[in-house]
Design a protein around this nucleic acid. Structure first.
Length: 809
RNA sequence: GCAGGAAUGGCGGAAUAGGCAGACGCGCGGGACUUAAAAUCCCGUUCUAGAAAUAGAGUGAGAGUUCGAUUCUCUCUUCCUGCACCA
């Protein structure tokens, strides 16, 4: 009995059966199978529906998980919830409801959707970062960092978002604006918890070599860490005992220096002020005040006009012995190097612009290509590349690289400076002045000072409160809850107060991949033996927006835990890939305000899960952005419906005596190879092509069983239904991938093109094992060959076995 | 500026240990079915010339290597992503 394709009838039925069985369960310590840990970034359950992007990523990874199980691997493909964070808190404030409740509802909605998509997650390992049983261990890991001296509290100017009333990490500020709400960020001095990620900067950069991440991912991590060699050189300020410590990465250009510039907000400026000549003093302090008023954005916006002020002071370049004027200018940033730079206008565009404006001399010391030592008289001619050094005393006639080495030795020898390695990466500001996050497990005691909460007192639970609103003072809303804040000191048992800051939403996600291995453990964050079995994550799939921050933070935590011998190995993830983004129709971002959001729910109602999944895979390459098209999904829908009926018909009309066919063997190989190399879009086209090419063919029983197996990672519901209809036992997803008989992959006879001078002029039918001589014999019988070579011999015949013939005339 | 990537029909995209460019799908054109429409099915669809067979051109531009280049090398252009007055 052939049924029409009706996804509603078959999908729900099989989902219920899957999720009440253990077909997708990963087995700890299974030594008979190779383990494979496939991790897709867990979602932040905000709102009542997941995004199409989630659906696409989980679909693609799901097909891989299913294939790998069939290939005999013990696959761990888990799912959980990264549920702490601002959107939920903001929504809670707006609705005047507790974030706990909202989170619970959102998770329920996401769970329903993920199950309706038919994903093969091992739901027995589900985790939630906001469960106290989970964040107990987030807090515990924080205490290990604290005990190792990697967490400290510091009064530091932080980026403060006046709208969200929250401190933001440097990483959360884009173009001077809070990345979440777009509000201009101001500076505020607050006492903050900070994690010393810079202590691991070298290892975070170097140990990337241990991994198999995509090159683009490695490059972005290295770029973000931004390791550079700096040369700090002391210049004595004339007429004082103050020494300026100028910093440069290009000491090879020292002999071209003609001035010194200090950031107006560098600390040393206070010290210099008293030496500034009286007639200059007003001008200088005006300038300092003015630049303080500028926002970070105004100050760093492009290469605009350079402003500055002459301090009237001079210093001596201790390398060249030349006297240089000292300026203050806000194009120099206090956080870069020492906040003091040496001006070399011939070899730095900014310095050139500044020198022109203040009529300072320009001295060239690096030779350009072809021995160019011409005068630098315009910005375009400024030579910033490396080259042969001239007019430069003891580094004369050296290349830039050797000149820097020599300079490094020189300043050490003369004790006038040092070579320092600096990073772009800053320490990680770990405090948030918000309610919906993990409480930082620290107590402030008037007698004992900062005291960590004892480990047996964990978790420090988030108290239920009436108001979640952040305060204007910069204190966490937790500070208002007296009965929670007031506690006893773990050491002296005297009265003490709890830390009221909470952790950023990066905390829970920095180690979640470990909790999947042992989600219910109450004695440790995870059992060491289980970690030894499953770690590292074999493939970590996620968005490009997490390649710098989340990836770096979680690698940092892993390395700390590794140093404490609490986890195996040095790196948490073996491979990292980045998926593209699903855009709305017309190539714009899907957003509520544009009204172009397409949710999985609508698609599941209309097309069902298998069609939705096939379309999401078909849309475009894994790593590329894809644009939603309602018309294209119709094409996929047509195909899936036809294919379903076709397979039923093929079963009815099957040849019960036949064996394996070439077409099916080739399809198995193609689907397997393409899935394993993330070419999900061509997997779907291969199925379509297969369908188009086998119309009218009668398949054997074996063949049809194989087709169902081949299709099962891609159209899991249809495959399960057909597996059952063809009289097999549940479940198709516990079966083995069809064996591919390699002799079936080679054709007996192939049609190959014949080119004359590189242009296709005809085709010949040959055996792929034919010798060149045999091929030439066949060629000589061809009309198109005789026509050209009737009365002359070809110059040369190139035969590539089984591929092509090219004749040179 | 630095780093990473990309450029192929009307559109999304296939094809690279160098070997038939445009698979597959959408859209479009024509036809069948229908009173009609939708749905479905069949045929066609890179461009130019031609009724057709066929011929020529063709993978951002220009050179090179090769019997043969979308694929490799060099130079350039444009675009995307990330970082950046980072000295």
């Amino acid at each position: 009995m052939i049924e029409k394709y009706n996804p509603q009838e078959i999908e729900k039925k099989w989902q219920e059966k899957w999720y009440s069985s253990d077909v997708y369960r990963a087995r700890d310590f299974d030594v008979n199978r190779e383990k494979y840990y496939l991790l897709a970034e867990f979602p932040y359950p905000s709102g009542d529906s997941m995004h199409m992007g989630h659906a696409r990523n989980y679909t693609e990874m799901d097909s891989l998980a299913r294939l790998r199980r069939m290939l005999g691997q013990n696959v761990l493909y888990p799912m959980g919830w990264d549920a702490f964070g601002l959107p939920t808190e903001n929504y809670a404030i707006k609705m005047k409801r507790p974030p706990q409740e909202i989170t619970k509802e959102n998770i329920a909605a996401f769970t329903r959707q993920l199950k309706a998509m038919g994903f093969s997650f091992d739901w027995s390992r589900e985790i939630n970062t906001t469960d106290s049983g989970y964040y107990k261990w987030t807090q515990w890991i924080f205490l290990q960092l604290y005990k190792k001296g990697l967490a400290y509290k510091a009064e530091m100017p932080i980026n403060w978002c006046p709208k969200c009333k929250v401190g933001c990490a440097n990483e959360e500020v884009i173009d001077g604006k809070h990345e979440r709400c777009g509000t201009e960020v101001t500076k505020k001095k607050l006492n903050q918890w900070v994690l010393k990620i810079t202590e691991y900067a070298d290892r975070l950069a170097d140990e990337l070599d241990e991994t198999d991440y995509w090159e683009s991912v490695k490059a972005r991590q290295r770029n973000w860490i931004g390791r550079k060699v700096w040369y700090d050189i002391e210049y004595p300020v004339e007429g004082t005992n103050v020494k300026l410590k100028v910093s440069t990465t290009r000491p090879d250009t020292q002999f071209g220096s003609t001035f010194v510039v200090i950031a107006p907000d560098a600390e040393i400026v206070d010290l210099l002020l008293k030496y500034i000549p009286a007639e200059k003093r007003d001008e200088v302090s005006d300038y300092i005040n003015e630049s303080k008023k500028k926002t970070e954005e105004e100050r760093t916006a492009g290469e605009k006009e350079k402003t500055g002020v002459d301090t009237g002071l001079r210093c001596k370049n201790s390398i060249t012995d030349k006297s240089l004027p000292i300026y203050l200018a806000d194009f120099v940033l206090p956080t870069v190097g020492t906040g003091m730079v040496v001006g070399v206008p011939a070899h730095d565009k900014r310095d050139f612009v500044f020198a022109k404006k203040y009529s300072l001399p320009i001295i060239r010391v690096v030779e350009g290509p072809n021995g160019d030592r011409g005068e630098i008289d315009s910005v375009e001619k400024v030579y910033e590349d490396e080259g042969l050094i001239f007019d430069s005393g003891f580094i004369n006639n050296l290349g830039s690289v050797e000149a820097r080495e020599k300079m490094g030795e020189y300043i050490k020898e003369k004790n006038i400076g040092e070579v320092v390695i600096r990073y772009n990466l800053r320490d990680w500001i770990f405090s948030r002045q918000h309610y919906w996050g993990e409480p930082i497990p620290i107590v402030h005691c008037p007698k004992c000072g900062v005291v960590p909460v004892s480990e047996n007192q964990l978790p420090v639970e988030l108290p239920k409160v009436k108001s979640y609103e952040p305060t204007d003072t910069g204190e966490s809303p937790l500070a208002n809850i007296k009965e929670w804040v007031n506690t006893v000191c773990p050491i002296c048992k005297g009265e003490a107060k709890r830390e009221t800051d909470t952790m950023p939403n990066w905390a829970g996600s920095s180690w979640y991949f470990l909790r999947y291995l042992d989600p219910k453990n109450s004695e440790a964050f995870a059992d060491m033996d289980k970690m030894k079995y499953w770690m590292p994550v074999d493939h970590y799939e996620g968005g490009s927006e997490h390649v710098t921050l989340h990836l770096l933070y979680s690698r940092f935590w892993y390395k700390v835990l590794s140093d404490l011998k609490l986890v195996p190995g040095l790196e948490p993830y073996k491979k990292r890939t980045i998926h593209g983004v699903v855009l709305g129709e017309g190539g714009v971002k899907m957003s509520k305000s544009l009204g172009n959001v397409i949710t999985p729910d609508g698609l599941l109602d209309r097309y069902g899960a298998d069609v939705t999944r096939a379309y999401l895979m078909f849309m475009g390459p894994y790593e590329g952005d894809v644009v939603w098209s309602t018309e294209t999904i119709n094409g996929v829908n047509r195909f899936v419906a036809k294919f379903f009926v076709f397979l039923q018909k093929a079963w009815e009309q099957r040849d019960t005596k036949g064996g394996a066919s070439r077409e099916v063997a080739k399809l198995a190989k193609k689907v397997q190879n393409d899935l394993l190399s993330f070419k999900f879009n061509t997997v779907i086209s291969s199925l379509m092509q297969f369908y188009n090419s086998v119309q009218g063919k009668v398949f054997s029983t074996e063949d049809i069983e194989k087709i169902i197996l081949i299709v099962s990672p891609i159209l899991p519901h249809i495959a399960e239904e057909l597996w059952s209809q063809t009289g097999h036992e549940f479940s198709v997803h516990s079966q083995h991938w069809p064996e591919i008989e390699s002799n079936l992959l080679i054709d007996d006879s192939v049609s190959i093109p014949v080119q004359i001078n590189g242009k296709v002029r005809g085709k010949i039918q040959i055996s792929p094992r034919a010798s060149e001589g045999e091929v030439v014999e066949i060629l000589k019988q061809q009309e198109f060959f005789v026509k050209v070579f009737a009365c002359k011999e070809p110059k040369r015949i190139v035969y590539v076995p089984g591929k092509i013939v090219n004749i040179v005339q």
